[in-house]
Nucleic acid binder design. Structure first.
Lengths: 208, 208
DNA sequence: ATCAGGACTTGAACACGTTCAACAACGGGC
DNA sequence: GCCCGTTGTTGAACGTGTTCAAGTCCTGAT
């Protein structure tokens, strides 16, 4: 109840303009009571976070069920991602503001976000494994995480995207997916191979 | 005076723990007076932003003056960047938290940040143009901005880097620079050329 | 010397997120 | 039916960033 009210007000007035007092009043509870259910105003966003991940999966399911072409699957999944977050674009800025802080539990790299992160990476693993693409063996393990990182990049662009209907983000997706697809082919070439090898090694070194 | 005091307190106690009242008191002025010189607490950071840019340029100057090899110049400049920000690593998190918000004047993409941004891109133009590297003509225009973006990526990683002395970020730089160098060579190959062409086109389309 | 007008300074007041001690409602064990 | 611990609820109070009307100080023109 409180969460729904909060989300509605966030959408209507924006995050900063929505006071905890307004949320409490609209939800018909006392101010302090909101803090019984949510640790802070920011934690209200945390709830939205997991919800959006579920939405993403749902929106991507259709494409992943029917399509086998890698590029099409990736394209569909990326579009599904921004579609799932579309209603919240206006206040997503504030959301990512707090998410950008490393110590914040809302950070996509934080321990608290691990479930949502793992679920998201798993989604991109589905993208890869359900496709007919021939991925080099050593890339196959890390590719889902790389795609997830690319997805974060898309989201980052989307948050900053002020074009009507976020048309530019859709353009970005439509044109970047073929590039990734092509890069994946190039990754099998003899000249390019060592570079790919090094990229993989570097990522593993940084993750450790 | 106020700025120096604020920066010292930020370093000592962190951003959130430093109150405007504490800054005013330590600086020997009234609370409201701080707002005569700075629009907000966040704007205090804006000042640091430009200051750090100057530090970066200073720290990079030595390498850029002596070295002509592209990889060495880039490596030196990137290292100089994190060195310049090193004293502020602890509270840089908070800094980038507000910087991540698109509407914030502190965003590296905002109009208010244009001077610092342009100065930073110009620095990477120096990296390219002072080097002996053979850069394809169509890449030459956009490469500085791409390198600046890569620098932002490094900073982003650095902010999240909890390893002692931010050793991992230094590792990232040392290993990513040769990769960029190699990629630049590959960019001249006939097979790779169309991909590079498309990347450039995409960037220009997104920027417009 | 005087004065006008701007530059600077002040601290009380405001709205906000958050905390907390107190209170109410509930539910299960006897 | 009564008790008591848990769960839920309340609004006053605190500390915060920020605003503002009111003051003080300075500077240059007369």
């Amino acid at each position: 109840m409180i969460l729904d009210t909060a989300m509605r007000l966030f959408r209507e007035r924006g995050y900063a303009q929505t006071t905890m007092r307004a949320i409490a009043q609209e939800a018909g509870v006392a101010l302090g009571n909101a803090y019984y259910y949510f640790d802070s105003k920011e934690h209200l966003i945390q709830e939205f976070y997991s919800g959006s991940q579920v939405q993403h999966r749902r929106a991507a399911a259709r494409v992943l069920a029917t399509e086998t072409d890698f590029a099409a699957r990736l394209r569909g999944t990326l579009h599904a991602g921004i579609e799932a977050n579309d209603p919240y674009h206006a206040f997503a800025a504030t959301f990512f503001k707090t998410a950008a802080e490393p110590s914040s539990p809302l950070s996509p790299f934080s321990a608290e976000s691990a479930p949502a992160r793992d679920a998201s990476i798993a989604l991109f693993r589905e993208v890869v494994e359900g496709s007919t693409a021939k991925v080099p063996a050593d890339l196959r393990d890390d590719l889902p995480e790389l795609l997830w990182l690319a997805y974060l990049g898309v989201i980052l662009y989307w948050v900053h995207d002020r074009s009507p209907g976020q048309a530019k983000t859709r353009l970005l997706i439509d044109r970047v997916v073929p590039l990734i697809d092509r890069a994946l082919s190039l990754a099998r070439m003899r000249v390019v191979r060592p570079v790919v090898r090094e990229v993989i090694d570097l990522i593993r070194a940084l993750r450790a």
